[in-house]
């Protein structure tokens, strides 16, 4: 498997670490109710199809949001977390 890093271009899987769904970027405010924190920390969809995931490109230090199809394995997009909204 290969992934595109916005800095470095396409690279082998071995250079990346995945920490799961990109939902993790939507951090609740400090005073959000416990339900919001529970959902943020623990509740994830498990989509068969398009997914947005957080990956780290270790050699250059860039965190990415990778759009990937979990059925077809096609990578359709990749943006630096800093630039993603």
């Amino acid at each position: 498997m290969r992934l595109p890093c916005p800095c470095c271009g396409w690279r082998d899987l071995r250079e990346f670490t995945c920490i799961g769904a990109a939902d993790y970027l939507e951090r609740p405010t400090a005073d959000a109710p416990p339900e919001a924190w529970d959902a943020y920390l623990h509740v994830r969809d498990n989509p068969a199809g398009p997914a947005r995931e957080l990956w780290y490109h270790d050699p250059c230090g860039t965190w990415l949001v990778v759009e990937r199809d979990t059925v077809m394995h096609a990578v359709t997009g990749s943006r630096a977390v800093e630039d993603a909204q």
Binding site: T17, I19, Y24, L25, R27, Y56, W63, V81, E82
Partner: peptide, 11 residues
């Protein structure tokens, strides 16, 4: 280091 990079780049 990975954690700090994440916090900085994401939040």
């Amino acid at each position: 280091m990975r954690h700090l990079e994440f916090v900085q780049q994401a939040f």
